[in-house]
Amino acid sequence: MSDEGYCVLLFDSVSSTLLAERTLKKKGISHKVIPVPRQISSDCGVCIRFRPELREEIVSTLKGAVEFRDICTL
């Protein structure tokens, strides 16, 4: 499956990534934990992929709960 058109959230650590996963899951926001795509450099091996239209909702959900490093579009 191509990741094209998706966005990914990048984190400092796996712990932060999984904390974000937990936070999004509780809110029922669609996402997937995936290995960091090759073309992106990241501090940890996993990231969270999501549809670009969810960007605002995701950013506001994570605010105050867990810090992320960057958002990239694939």
Partner: peptide, 22 residues
Amino acid sequence: NPGRSGHTLSIEAARTVMDARE
């Protein structure tokens, strides 16, 4: 090994650690 790779089992191991942390 938790969080040492992006594969399914590594992520699942990292979730195991997170479950305990939570």
